[in-house]
Amino acid sequence: MAAPEPPTTSVAGPAEDRIPTVIASDVSITYRIYGSGRAVDDDDEMGVLKRVLQRSTQNVGVREVKAVKNVSLVAYEGESIGLVGRNGSGKSTLLRSIAGLVPPTGGRLWLRGKAALLGVNAVLLPNLSGRDNIWIGAQALGLTPKEVRARFDEIVDFADLGEFIGLPMKSYSSGMAARLRFAISTAVVPDILVVDEALATGDAQFRERAQDRIAEIRGAAGTVFMVSHNPGTIVKMCDRALWLDDGELVMDGPAGPVVDAYTAKYGRPRKKPGKGKPAPEDPPEKP
């Protein structure tokens, strides 16, 4: 694994004159999954009745999954932070907490200012038109109806949906929905913008505009967090990166070295998974 690089001056000025926007202290996030029950141990020795009973109740109960484990970090104004990690490593869960949407179950998390989440799964109301979703989304970000009216055209222009703006969101392609979500989420310049793979679905032209908008937000002293499975994007757009593995923060540093270390471990010639850890697709162990 790469040795920590000496900090570059642009990202690691003395901590004193930078203003923190996110402080996480020992943050853990556990969530409950219903109907996931326990693992069945199918045993030939078992009587038929017992086996039937066990099969029929195997989906009963709740499992707790520790998605994020004891993460501590400080993010500052003007920083752009990328998150890398395999599927199921807790990136999205951590980001939801950083956006102030799902409070952590352990540890403490402080935020400065307004946060907005932009995610692939952030479905607003699929039955409503793009227009209605703009109204609801923008107001949920704290805009008054007057302000929404003032910015409405700008949002519609950025989303670039044409006549689809009047159709229910469920009829949108994933790229269109991503554009609309991006346009809504950045209608107000948030202090903390959390981008959860939302840029992956757009076309090249949209990605470019989105990158400009993100640069704008950083220029306005905002902090940007983003998840991307494309290491190139992280290196290009972020100056700092976090590597999460199995819910734990394993590396935190300048984007280049962190991404290098990550790709060295899980790079294209896929190596065997790390020792003792379940593959991300595996059902989590019962606690």
Binding site: A12, S25, D26, S72, M251, D252, G253
Partner: peptide, 16 residues
């Protein structure tokens, strides 16, 4: 990984 990869220099762990 839990045995501790290198921690970046940017975020020395803060105590609560």
């Amino acid at each position: 990984m839990s045995e501790g990869g290198p921690r970046g220099p940017l975020s020395p762990t803060l105590s609560p």
